[in-house]
Nucleic acid binder design. Structure first.
Lengths: 352, 352
DNA sequence: TTTAGCACTCGGCCTATCTGAGTGCTAAAG
DNA sequence: CTTTAGCACTCAGATAGGCCGAGTGCTAAA
């Protein structure tokens, strides 16, 4: 059954008013704020109708109405006007996007922090590798006779390095030999394929040489593991406390615990979609999030990885505002990673 | 004026009881829990004496006593018994110390998280460079004709890398040339010394070549900057909420804001000392910390850097417990970094 | 110097009361 | 059929009063 235009207008007024004030909305304020030429009694009748439709609810008999989850859903789907970012806002976000060149994990962590800053809600961020990563190339650089640097380059153009100290010494030719061995034997292998290869090499290599090889290879495996694993970050959890629904610690505590401990991202929708997704209250899978809303956006990291970034807040969340910022930011991240490389050389001292 | 042994015993009982229960301690419970062969009236007299000495105070007339900051101070200095860690605890900490090889900044961040976990209080961690860092060596590794990897090694044996994409192409000899130039001109210079050198080179280099040079050099500068800057991390701020003194958000909010926003570590003691330092309530410089205690330990990072790690909590903090864990952990970090290199190749999936 | 006893204090808790915002309903008006 | 004015009703939250008991300080005796 379709709502009348007036009902839509009232529903929208209730939602937006409630989002702003966190107080149940009465019929009177609606007649005042909206330019409706009807009396409060009429609005009351309409609100009663909206309530029987399950779009509004009353905390108690003598209070105003608040939107039900279905009410929010309808609002989000049909009534919400896309929020336009101000120039100032977009430049601020663009500025924040000039992340320092860093390990992927840290970029993602920082992205979470930034989103939390811009939205005033707790944020989470993660990256998921869906394809297998392999090492494309090894490089060994001599430092002293007892130390060298390993540099590995993956097929997704991530670079990692490590300084290796040796108990004994090594000379340049030996290092070259090792280098060649690595680049012929351990290249283009996935994590699982490396182990048997290492076993095979072990069988016909001298003890000392093998120790060296396994040292470097296990570093490579560590890198592969890092890039394939889902790493999950949260930021700004304490921002929850600024919202009136969490003024009482009894409400806030379980959610905070959930976010800071259990959060492995299992409750999140898979990042298959391009658009920003809004999950309202009980639509969440996790029980702890049943009266919490989640807004998520996804972005591309190079060719074979994908990231998710989102915020968590009360169902009374400013969906329009959050969605706009989050989408814009996610797009920015895609662009950033789109170059196939980590972000450009840029300076920006942004810490928390 | 020196306290009598009995007074010391009572003071200690009050402190430890209050640390455990967070409730003002009455004379009766002391006679019961301590094996003192005196009546509660005697204890009351002694407590009154301790109060006039400024070591105890009364929240209101009809309540028990709680320790004053001076009381805590005396307890910490003279009465507190060093807490011994259980085998289980030490192995757990040792396990946690097997941090993955990572950028310095992340190791420090993680260290903070771990300490917060072990102490149940919010933790902070930072590193300060006190000597100037310089680049010891550049290495350029060709990837494709339009991309190469820069690897820089600092005099403190930190290694950093970056993949550079070019708009145009480059061949091996050109790269060699660039490599030689870098290693002759931009090596062993501090951050400030690099800029004029770059200017000098700019004056007699072709435009395109200069672009390339400045790309690599600015990356090097970024690395130096990172290593010299104080980077500050906090973790586990929400753990505050688990302590009864912060059940009321009015108390918790300002402190949380302080810790999560302003915290640049300015309120921290300089890490000159070896031992663990305890700052009690009003001894803190920052107003926001006036009824909060801070315990800090410091550790060495290689030869020319130093880190601080510590926890923040109510003055009713379990000093013995916290100090033991923090000191042990800081020692572990020193050992870890003592090798002059980032931590060993080890796997441990510890997130949060 | 210690102890038993006693009057006293005062924060926390529980209950009673009041207030007002907002409702639903009804009957009259458009 | 829709809208409106009016009115009785409901109920959360704030305010005030009263009780309870833990813990104290003081005094007088051991």
């Amino acid at each position: 059954m379709e709502l009348t235009p007036r009902q839509k207008r009232i529903l929208r007024a209730v939602v937006e008013n409630y989002i702003e004030t966190a107080e149940p909305v009465g019929s009177k304020v609606i007649t005042e704020t909206e330019g409706l030429d009807v009396s409060s009694a009429t609005v009351r009748n309409e609100m009663a109708a909206l309530e029987t439709l399950g779009l509004l609810e009353q905390p108690h008999t003598s209070a105003g109405r608040i939107p039900s989850p279905q009410g929010y859903r309808l609002y989000v789907n049909e009534l919400m006007e896309a929020h336009r970012l101000s120039m100032q806002e977009t430049t601020r976000i663009n500025e924040a996007l000039k992340l320092k060149m860093q390990e992927l994990d840290r970029v993602i962590d920082q992205a979470g922090r930034i989103v939390s800053q811009f939205t005033k809600y707790p944020a989470f961020a993660l990256a998921t590798g869906n394809k297998r990563v392999t090492i494309r190339r090894f490089d060994l650089l001599m430092v002293e006779d007892s130390a060298f640097i390993v540099v590995v380059l993956t097929d997704s153009n991530m670079v990692r390095n490590k300084l290796v100290r040796l108990p004994g010494t090594l000379n340049e030719p030996q290092l070259q030999l090792l280098n060649t061995l690595l680049n012929t034997t351990f290249v283009n292998l996935t994590l699982e394929e490396i182990t048997p290869e290492l076993m095979r090499v072990a069988s016909h290599a001298a003890g000392e040489a093998y120790g060296l090889i396994s040292l470097v290879v296990s570093f490579a495996m560590e890198v592969l593991e890092e890039l394939e694993s889902r790493s999950f970050h949260t930021a700004g959890i304490t921002k929850l406390l600024e919202h009136p629904e969490y003024k009482s610690l009894d409400r806030a505590q379980p959610l905070i615990n959930y976010l800071s401990n259990e959060s492995d991202g299992t409750y999140l929708p898979s990042p298959s979609q391009e658009e920003t997704k809004i999950i309202i209250g009980p639509e969440n899978l996790a029980n702890e999030l049943k009266d919490t809303s989640v807004v998520v956006a996804s972005y591309d990291i190079g060719d074979n990885m994908r990231g998710i970034i989102g915020v968590v807040g009360p169902t009374r969340m400013d969906y329009a505002r959050v969605t706009a910022r989050l989408s814009y930011f996610a797009e920015g991240l895609s662009r950033l990673f789109g170059k196939g490389v980590l972000p450009p050389v840029e300076d920006s001292k942004k810490e928390e």
